[in-house]
Amino acid sequence: MMTNLFSTFDPSTNILNLSLNWLSTLIGIFMIPMMYWFIPSRYSMIWINIINILHKEFKTLLGPYNYKGSTFIFISLFSLILFNNFMGLFPYIYTSSSHLSMTLSLALPLWMTYMIFGWINNTQYMFAHLVPQGTPPILMPFMVMIESISNIIRPGTLAIRLAANMIAGHLLLTLLGNTGPLMNSFLLSLLIMVQMLLLTLEFAVSIIQAYVFSILSTLYSSEVI
């Protein structure tokens, strides 16, 4: 029995005491490169089209300071998060993107590199960015404080947004699934239909959250240039 409802998100998967907590994160290494070695299939063509659309989107967000290959880090970020979100929808596979240690390890280094690059190369611009244009002089100290706090909490909001959205859907599926044995056949068939609809919603959330994470990372990078 689970001692806590949230224990379903504990990374405690193991076989013969061999820890398999983060194995779902690494499965993509064995699966994704296959499409580079075979004749292009419909799957690989769809994926290439998605990458081209993302490339154009990130290139537009980066603006005139876009360098060749600069969008690929965000495309890779999108692919990693999307794959981990999808893997978590399968039974008995740990959702690594629902853990803060995973999401923070993606958001914090990105934000830190933006800040280091911005303050070293564009110090005057970074200071000017703390005070929005047209701010009255009396409000400038407060605006600097508010802008600094909003800048500092960015990696936390990125990480918590992704983890919380992944946990929320899975938690709802778990809650409804635990009531199944107590229902009659009619309510059970209704529950299965609701679970299928929720699973479809989770598929959409997996795509949206990966897109939001990568888009916000791109926007944050464009602000320090």
Rank of each mutant, 00 (worst) to 15 (best):
E147Y: 08
Y114A: 00
S150E: 09
F58I: 02
I167K: 15
V144W: 08
T174H: 10
A168S: 15
F90T: 01
K56Q: 06
I152K: 11
F83N: 04
I138H: 01
P155K: 07
S70L: 13
I153K: 13
I48N: 14
Y125D: 06
F142G: 01
F58C: 04
Y92H: 08
Y125T: 05
L176D: 01
M143G: 01
P141S: 03
F117E: 04
A128R: 13
F142Y: 13
I93H: 01
T103L: 07
S79I: 15
P91E: 04
F142A: 10
Y94K: 02
W37F: 15
G63M: 08
I81N: 03
M140P: 00
G88M: 11
S101T: 15
I149A: 10
F83V: 06
I153C: 14
W47L: 14
I51Y: 05
S76L: 14
H170G: 13
L139P: 02
G88D: 00
F72H: 14
T157L: 07
F83H: 05
A168W: 08
M115S: 03
G169D: 03
W119K: 11
M102E: 09
I50M: 14
K59R: 00
L171H: 06
N121L: 11
L62D: 00
H99R: 11
T123K: 14
Q124E: 05
F86K: 05
I73T: 07
I53C: 02
N49K: 15
Q133C: 03
L106G: 06
L176S: 02
P64K: 06
Y65Q: 13
L175C: 07
M140N: 03
G169C: 06
W111H: 14
T123Q: 10
L108G: 10
S148C: 12
L54P: 02
E147K: 10
G177R: 06
N151Q: 12
S98Y: 06
L61R: 07
P91R: 07
I51A: 06
L130A: 05
A164G: 04
F58S: 00
N85C: 13
I167S: 10
Y114R: 02
M115V: 11
I152Q: 14
L100Y: 10
S44W: 08
N121M: 13
